[in-house]
Computed example of a mutant assay.
Amino acid sequence: MSTHFKKKSKTSQEIPTASMPDIIFMLLIFFMVSTVLRETTVQVRTRLPQAEAITKIEQKRLISYIWIGPRKLANNRLGETAVQIDDALIEDISTIRTIMWRKLNEQPKLIVSLRVDETSEMGTVLDVQQELREAGTLRINYSTKRLLAS
């Protein structure tokens, strides 16, 4: 038999993977930098009021949220009006001043976004506003929903 018809191939059919760790590392860094994780479990109900003219804040990292509304209880019941910052319910309104002063020192361009339930007591909202004023956090935003066209 002749060796003339035997095919000897020295080419490899493998995919080059030398740069794969670099690509994976770049993708990992990209997603770590661009992803914002939700850290807060809201313990108060907030049905936001509607408004006609609203402006969206682009820089979400500069915002600190304060929720004001009836406290969520077991069996879908609601309690008294409560204030929540991050994951903690605030028992004493005067502690808001200290908490927000510390946050303002960490982030000088801090915007405080009040998410107030439409059935909340206005006295509580005024107390929170006064504590924010005392803390020097004067950039305040009131969160609303866009008014639906009828």
Results as ranks from 00 to 15, higher is better:
T98C: 02
A51K: 05
L73H: 02
L28K: 12
G79L: 05
E52F: 03
I66E: 03
V83S: 05
T11V: 08
L89F: 07
I140L: 11
L78F: 11
K103S: 00
R139N: 14
L78P: 03
W101L: 14
L62V: 04
L148I: 06
I90P: 07
E58D: 13
V44F: 01
I57Q: 08
W101K: 15
K60L: 13
T40C: 07
G123C: 03
V33A: 14
E52P: 05
T137N: 10
I29L: 15
I24D: 08
A149E: 14
K6E: 15
A135G: 03
Q129G: 10
K109Q: 14
T144P: 10
I23N: 09
R115Q: 12
R133S: 12
F5T: 13
I96C: 06
H4L: 14
D22E: 12
I140T: 02
R77L: 11
I99Q: 15
R97F: 07
T41V: 13
K10R: 09
I85P: 04
I29W: 11
T119H: 07
M32S: 13
R77S: 09
L27H: 00
D22L: 14
V116P: 11
G136F: 05
L132M: 02
S64T: 02
K8C: 05
L114I: 01
E80G: 05
V36S: 13
L27M: 09
I96M: 04
S19Q: 08
T55S: 15
I54H: 12
Q129N: 14
V42S: 08
M26C: 11
S150A: 11
I63D: 01
H4A: 13
V42M: 11
E80F: 07
L132H: 05
P108A: 01
F25E: 15
P108N: 04
